Simulated scan of single mutants.
Amino acid sequence: MDEAVRGLSASTTRYQLWTEFLQTKRVESMAEIGVYRGRFAAEVLSACDSIRTYYMVDPWRHLDDWNKPSNTDDSRFATYLAETEANTEFAADKRVILRGTTLEVIDQIPDASLDFAYVDGDHTLRGISIDLINVWPKVRTGGWIGGDDFAHTMWQHGDRFEPTLVFPFAVYFAEAVGARIFALPHQQFLICKEPGFEFVDLTDSYPDTTLQGQFRLKRVLRGWLTDTIGILRSERRRTPPAKSATHSDQA
């Protein structure tokens, strides 16, 4: 196994996980599908000096057929786009902003031109299918596709919203194209565009890739607890400790 991939198991946040991987691989051209407010892009562009081209794919608009918590109104999405532009202004010569859904803009990225693509857009079955199938030809042989929300349960956002099916669909996709896929900490996955299917679970927390397993009550509860605890720990690591009260603080 690639030592750079094995080493990802020790990462404390998803930002550290991906910036260390991209630094090690000296990635020059990449795409992010689902940019939101640009925080991930800013972290990556700041940490990885090898990057020459960074495609940002996001509709930044309300989508009538997307039933997920992040689907807000157009005015707020316009604010998020402005925030993304501000967050990444320091790398304006490297970024390529493609405002639209994957199907609307993906053809603006040349085939086999990407070293890496990060998929963090529509996590429904429809969305992850569209994103993985359409970004695959854009990645060169020997390149990688990473992604977020490789959740242990499809009920990531409760039953009021469309299920999250990045897992297990990404595993099925990797098998269909004959590629190795890794389950990583922080609900991340990595597909290597090289021949030979294998699902390597570096977290030891994905024992069952069947949909039937997703619907078992015990699995649903265990997955929800695993993801919730992981999110809380991640948030705790990102929150600075509270300062002790001083006379100046109380003034």
Results as ranks from 00 to 15, higher is better:
residue 5 V to Y: 04
residue 6 R to C: 04
residue 14 R to G: 03
residue 14 R to K: 06
residue 17 L to H: 09
residue 20 E to T: 14
residue 23 Q to P: 02
residue 25 K to E: 04
residue 25 K to F: 09
residue 28 E to R: 15
residue 29 S to T: 15
residue 29 S to R: 14
residue 30 M to S: 03
residue 31 A to N: 05
residue 31 A to K: 03
residue 32 E to M: 11
residue 33 I to A: 11
residue 34 G to K: 01
residue 38 G to M: 09
residue 39 R to P: 04
residue 40 F to V: 11
residue 42 A to H: 05
residue 43 E to S: 03
residue 45 L to K: 04
residue 45 L to N: 04
residue 45 L to Q: 09
residue 46 S to C: 06
residue 46 S to M: 01
residue 47 A to V: 04
residue 47 A to F: 07
residue 48 C to E: 09
residue 49 D to E: 13
residue 49 D to H: 06
residue 53 T to F: 03
residue 54 Y to F: 13
residue 55 Y to D: 09
residue 58 D to V: 00
residue 59 P to M: 13
residue 60 W to R: 11
residue 60 W to C: 03
residue 61 R to W: 02
residue 61 R to G: 08
residue 62 H to T: 06
residue 64 D to A: 12
residue 65 D to S: 13
residue 70 S to D: 02
residue 72 T to R: 07
residue 75 S to P: 09
residue 76 R to V: 03
residue 77 F to D: 11
residue 78 A to Q: 10
residue 79 T to V: 02
residue 81 L to E: 15
residue 82 A to C: 00
residue 86 A to R: 12
residue 89 E to T: 01
residue 89 E to A: 14
residue 93 D to H: 14
residue 94 K to F: 05
residue 95 R to K: 12
residue 98 L to S: 07
residue 98 L to C: 07
residue 105 V to T: 13
residue 106 I to P: 00
residue 106 I to M: 14
residue 111 D to H: 10
residue 112 A to D: 15
residue 113 S to D: 10
residue 115 D to Y: 11
residue 116 F to G: 09
residue 117 A to H: 05
residue 121 G to N: 13
residue 121 G to T: 07
residue 121 G to Y: 06
residue 127 G to S: 15
residue 128 I to K: 08
residue 128 I to F: 14
residue 134 N to A: 12
residue 134 N to C: 08
residue 135 V to C: 07
residue 136 W to C: 08
residue 138 K to A: 08
residue 138 K to G: 09
residue 139 V to D: 09
residue 140 R to F: 07
residue 141 T to H: 05
residue 144 W to E: 12
residue 145 I to L: 05
residue 146 G to C: 07
residue 148 D to T: 05
residue 157 H to N: 02
residue 159 D to G: 01
residue 160 R to T: 04
residue 163 P to K: 02
residue 167 F to G: 00
residue 167 F to V: 05
residue 168 P to S: 00
residue 169 F to C: 03
residue 169 F to T: 03
residue 170 A to R: 06
residue 173 F to I: 08
residue 174 A to H: 11
residue 175 E to N: 13
residue 179 A to Y: 07
residue 180 R to N: 01
residue 180 R to W: 00
residue 182 F to W: 14
residue 184 L to I: 03
residue 186 H to A: 06
residue 189 F to T: 03
residue 190 L to I: 05
residue 190 L to D: 11
residue 190 L to R: 02
residue 192 C to H: 15
residue 193 K to M: 03
residue 195 P to F: 00
residue 199 F to Y: 06
residue 199 F to R: 07
residue 200 V to M: 13
residue 205 S to G: 15
residue 206 Y to D: 10
residue 207 P to N: 00
residue 208 D to M: 03
residue 209 T to N: 10
residue 212 Q to R: 13
residue 212 Q to W: 09
residue 213 G to W: 06
residue 214 Q to Y: 04
residue 216 R to T: 07
residue 217 L to F: 15
residue 218 K to T: 07
residue 221 L to E: 10
residue 222 R to F: 01
residue 222 R to P: 02
residue 225 L to A: 13
residue 230 G to N: 05
residue 231 I to T: 12
residue 232 L to N: 08
residue 232 L to H: 08
residue 234 S to K: 12
residue 235 E to I: 11
residue 236 R to S: 10
residue 236 R to N: 01
residue 236 R to E: 12
residue 237 R to F: 13
residue 238 R to G: 02
residue 238 R to N: 06
residue 240 P to M: 07
residue 241 P to A: 11
residue 241 P to S: 13
residue 246 T to K: 04
residue 247 H to R: 10
residue 248 S to Q: 14
residue 248 S to H: 10
residue 249 D to V: 00
residue 249 D to P: 00
residue 251 A to T: 06
